[in-house]
Amino acid sequence: MAKTALLAKLTAKEGMRDDLLAVIADLGMSNVAGEPGTEIYAVHKDQNDADVVWFYELYSDQDALATHGGSDQMKVVGKAMGEFMAARPELIFLDPAAAKGLDF
């Protein structure tokens, strides 16, 4: 099966990006550690917007993405992040084509 990727933009309430990042560090990162199909789960701070966080996620296949998104732990993470979010996450689904350091 083909790998699948996700680019997610999370916009925190004004001045609450660090709070949002703390939830991601405390709950989100520990959750993905046990997901064998989650190959990359990288969080980035936007350099031009102090309230925005970006995720790049790479999964072994669509089933791995569905397992991640549908897990009970991700529901806990989503609820915990909710109090710091200004809007719903913006999700862009991708089909990887080429990359340095990654096999497709």
Rank of each mutant, 00 (worst) to 15 (best):
T4P: 04
A8P: 04
A5K: 09
V76W: 04
Y56D: 02
L20N: 06
L58W: 07
A97H: 00
L27A: 09
Q73D: 05
T4I: 13
V32I: 13
Q47C: 04
M16T: 13
Y41V: 12
A25K: 13
L102N: 07
R17H: 03
E57Q: 13
I92G: 04
E90H: 07
M81G: 03
F104D: 10
M16S: 13
V32N: 05
F104E: 10
D63S: 15
Q62V: 08
V32A: 05
A50H: 02
A42S: 14
K13E: 10
G70M: 12
E14M: 11
A97Q: 01
N48F: 11
I92N: 06
K45C: 01
Q62P: 04
N48L: 11
K13I: 09
K3S: 06
G28K: 01
Q47G: 01
D103T: 13
G101C: 05
A22D: 12
K45A: 03
M29W: 05
G28L: 00
K9I: 06
D18E: 15
Q47W: 02
V53I: 12
Q47K: 09
L58A: 11
Q73S: 08
V52I: 14
F93I: 01
L6S: 08
L7W: 07
I92T: 11
K45G: 00
L6W: 09
D19I: 06
A66S: 13
A12T: 04
E14W: 05
T4W: 07
D51N: 15
A5H: 12
A50D: 06
K9V: 11
G37A: 15
K45W: 00
A5G: 15
M1S: 13
V32K: 03
Y59P: 11
I40L: 09
R88Q: 13
F84L: 02
M74G: 03
A50T: 03
V23K: 08
L10F: 08
L21R: 08
V77R: 02
E35Q: 15
E39Y: 08
K13D: 07
E39R: 09
W54V: 09
R88C: 00
P96D: 12
A8M: 15
A50F: 01
A2M: 03
G78H: 08
D95P: 00
L27G: 02
G37T: 11
M74I: 14
G15H: 03
L10E: 01
L58R: 15
A50W: 00
L21Q: 09
D49N: 15
A2E: 06
F104P: 02
T11W: 00
A86L: 01
A5T: 09
N48E: 15
L21V: 14
I24M: 14
A50L: 02
